[in-house]
């Protein structure tokens, strides 16, 4: 049996997926990146291999996420795609008539508008990370509720508190203030969910036409409180796909499958790539006033890849 591997390395989580020829998900891994993308990919591959049924062979590999180029070198990717396209591809594959994709990840949030299966517009948070997964993580920890139960708590709320949601720091001060005034934890938590959704709709979704079907994906989609807040604000049902937290990886796998159709063989390096010692280092190019930071990936003495410059003189991929 032939499988296609998708790898999505983001700021917070590293996700790996294998889909079969009928594009069903065979196995997936969702794990923390912990600031070490190379290790996360290598260990993720090791774990993934354990989950795969015998006799499955990887016929193509794709990477996405903020560390897409780095992980592309490590796994030997046939296609390296940005996370916006990957998420759009996955969403429209799973919900073919989707017209709006809300995606909230660890440190970024995006919206993708599709019409008749084609992305026509998108936006991504630029100057503010309020309302993304990292912030919710941090608040859950501060209140002492595991992030997995955060959403369930929110649903218990009877009278949500008003929380300032424009800036995470002020949101936090506001939450502390409300706690000290004696509000219930669930009311504060749901109030926070509402304010984050408001912030998302007022910033990222500003001026866009949000038509249903609406798909909500990314790690934060696990949070039932945010889902409910979206449904209240948009006055419509929001679909959360089964594999909502690995949609980027599914998109990368789908794109890999498409790419190898026009390619003699896959560049996938095999699962043994987990045991290779990849070394990264960086330096500043002194060629001109741009002073680009160049990143280098080596195995032994061989330079596998180099990037980061604007002019392209260092680039090897």
């Amino acid at each position: 049996m032939i499988g296609y591997l998708g790898v999505d390395v983001g700021s917070v989580s590293t996700n790996l997926v294998v889909i079969d020829e009928k594009t069903n998900v065979v196995a997936y891994i969702y794990r923390r990146t912990m600031g070490e993308p190379i290790r996360a990919v290598q260990e993720g591959l090791r774990e993934l291999k354990e989950l795969l049924p015998l006799g499955i062979e990887i016929g193509g590999a794709g990477t996405t996420g903020s560390a897409r180029y780095l992980s592309g070198v490590i796994v030997g990717a046939d296609v390296v795609k940005n996370e916006i396209t990957a998420h759009a591809v996955a969403a429209s594959h799973i919900v073919p008539d989707v017209r709006t994709v809300l995606e909230i990840g660890g440190q970024d949030s995006k919206i993708i508008i599709l019409r008749e299966g084609v992305a026509v517009d998108f936006a991504m948070n630029t100057v503010c990370a309020a309302g993304t997964g990292s912030f919710l993580d941090h608040q859950a920890e501060r209140i002492g509720i595991p992030i997995e139960e955060f959403g369930a708590y929110a649903l218990k709320s009877q009278a949500p508190a008003q929380i300032a949601g424009r800036c995470t720091v002020f949101a936090e001060s506001d939450m502390i203030h409300k706690q000290q005034m004696g509000y219930h934890a669930e009311d504060i938590i749901y109030g926070l969910c509402q304010s984050l959704v408001r912030n998302y709709l007022n910033n990222i979704a500003k001026g866009k036409e949000l038509l249903s079907p609406i798909v909500f994906q990314g790690g934060v989609a696990a949070n039932l409180g945010i889902k409910k807040a979206f449904e209240e604000a948009l006055e419509t049902r929001v679909i959360i796909p089964k594999y909502f937290n690995v949609m980027g990886a599914i998109g990368a796998a789908l794109l890999a499958k498409e790419r190898v159709e026009n390619k003699p063989e896959t560049s996938f390096k095999g699962f043994s790539t987990s045991d290779i010692d990849f070394k990264t280092s960086s330096f500043y190019c002194k060629g001109c006033s741009n002073n680009c930071e160049i990143l280098k990936i080596e195995v032994g003495k061989e330079v596998l890849a180099r990037w980061g410059g604007r002019c392209g003189k260092w680039e090897i991929e």
């Binding site: 940005n82 916006i84 396209t85 992305a119 026509v120 517009d121 998108f122």
Partner: peptide, 14 residues
């Protein structure tokens, strides 16, 4: 770069 890449994809598929 991420946004530019996505925008290029969007324009090609359009």
């Amino acid at each position: 770069i991420t946004r530019l890449e996505a925008f290029i994809d969007l324009l090609w598929s359009k």
